[in-house]
């Protein structure tokens, strides 16, 4: 149990520091132009990395499974104008359905 407490505390404190670092160090300053340009591209890179690892990483190995099918359905629903909640639920429903059959 104490190992769990230590793990949670370490993660919490370090995450607090990581979140605070940029705002504390850079508040009211200016970034060099190339760095601002790079950071403008960050949302696309970050979201892509989260999608890819969330969908294709199965305990450290590449895997194309029911989650990938769920993603295809969620993407199609979004492009057809579905709300986010609907798209996300369709992804889970698709994965569940594929695993059931």
């Amino acid at each position: 149990m104490s190992a769990t407490v230590a793990a949670i505390a370490t993660l919490a404190l370090a995450t607090f520091a990581i979140r605070a670092a940029g705002p504390v160090a850079l508040g009211g300053r200016r970034l060099p132009r190339p760095l601002s340009a790079a950071l403008a591209a960050l949302p696309a890179a970050l979201l892509t990395a989260l999608v890819v690892t969330g969908a294709f990483d199965r305990d450290g190995a590449l895997a194309v499974d029911a989650r990938a099918a769920g993603l295809v359905v969620a993407a199609a629903a979004t492009l057809l104008g579905a709300r986010m909640v609907t798209a996300v639920l369709l992804a889970a429903g698709t994965a569940a359905l594929l695993r059931a059959i």
Binding site: L47, L50, A55, G70, A75, V88, A92, T94, R99
Partner: peptide, 19 residues
């Protein structure tokens, strides 16, 4: 069985499509 592990990547995919 409920496909809940597909929720997380789908959430970020919807945001990515906007981006």
């Amino acid at each position: 069985r409920y496909g809940v592990d597909a929720l997380f990547p789908a959430f970020f995919l919807v945001l990515l499509l906007r981006e």
